[in-house]
Design a protein around this nucleic acid. Structure first.
Lengths: 199, 199
DNA sequence: ACGTTCATGTAAAGGGTTACATGATTTC
DNA sequence: GAAATCATGTAACCCTTTACATGAACGT
């Protein structure tokens, strides 16, 4: 799980970090997140507004109404906010947690319908393929950009891509295994109930 | 994010699924989770008790006091609970989300102290190495067991292992890159501030 | 002009974590 | 028999998600 904790959650620090790039509205941040860090962080659109309020209350950011008909609050870092980001960047990180519901279903597959599990996995595989394509697209864009941060962004992207590839390869392997089991199960008549003793 | 939703969260379904193996106390489930699905699911110890209460209220499980001095509530599936697990196993899964704070720090590394980032990454690498060792240990145990579920458990474990390996390889690569940057930064005097225009 | 997307939020509910507590077993 | 750890919980807090809303800009 987590370990450090200054007083702000990781998501809030990331929110603040985006303001290192310059002032932006909550909506801007949400949009930027979606195309830049989606492979390792995400937030519901409603959340960025709540984060903005929280961080405003805490004095980490300040706001300024933007001119124009459209109501738009431009957020920027206060000195306190900037210190918070810097401190965060210099401290250890919590360890990643993997939450993977599909793995849980495979784990308990002996108690379920293998064909359904197979369908679910195929769905997951499709998702990983499209994620991979998206990340490759981001990579193309990044490689064209000229900016001192790009090398770091590419580094993180490399992991995103590698993980997707790992997941796809894994899914293919498991899919093959499942097919074999399904076929052999069909050959030998209806499947057996698998409720043997454990532990 | 998520998609299905029967009315129970994924974690609750997983809780129920463990009861497919037979009656157990909340504590048993927590312990079992730690040595079997920790690489794709985890829960604070306090949570399993809350889940137990929730599922009890919902009629998915029933409890029975165990004999003996120690108070111990043995939980087991009700027909409704069993239906819930079965339905869950037969439905699509939500897509995995990766939450990785350390990647965020690398992403914004241009605004931080590279040596600190490097230290953080080393820490993360260590963690992945020890996770990997743990999973290999679980694999050894599983390979000795004789149980129709083992093949499925091994399948999921394979992904856990592959992901850790991917993370370690990635960390090594990035560590090398960072070292190079740190060294070249030192050679050419103090580092430059990286605040160039973006977008 | 009208529908759609953009942009902006609020409210409620809930899962999950941290912190707090405590009796029973085991260990030395 | 004291200490450690096992086993079992409760309470509070809060991040996060879902659902609900709404006005402005834009395309056609």
């Amino acid at each position: 799980m987590s370990r450090p904790e200054s007083e702000l959650a990781a998501g809030d620090h990331i929110f603040l970090a985006f303001l290192l790039w310059g002032p932006a509205s909550a909506y801007d941040i949400k949009k930027t997140m979606a195309v830049s860090v989606s492979y390792f962080w995400s937030a519901a659109h409603s959340q960025v507004y709540q984060q903005a309020n929280r961080l405003l209350r805490g004095g980490f950011i300040k706001e300024k109404e933007a001119p124009g008909g459209r109501r738009k609050r431009i957020l920027s870092l206060t000195p306190k906010g900037r210190r918070a980001v810097t401190g965060w960047l210099a401290s250890p990180a919590s360890f990643p947690e993997f939450r993977n519901e599909s793995l849980a279903k495979v784990f308990f597959a002996a108690h379920g319908d293998l064909e359904k599990i197979r369908a679910m996995l195929l769905d997951q595989r499709d998702h990983h393929v499209s994620q991979l394509a998206e990340y490759e697209g981001i990579r193309k864009l990044l490689e064209l950009a000229d900016n001192p941060e790009v090398p770091y962004e590419l580094m993180t992207l490399r992991l995103g891509i590698a993980v997707e590839q790992t997941c796809i390869a894994w899914a293919d392997e498991v899919l093959k295994d499942l097919d074999r089991k399904i076929r052999s199960g069909r050959d030998s008549g209806r499947e057996r109930r698998g409720g043997s003793a454990r532990k």
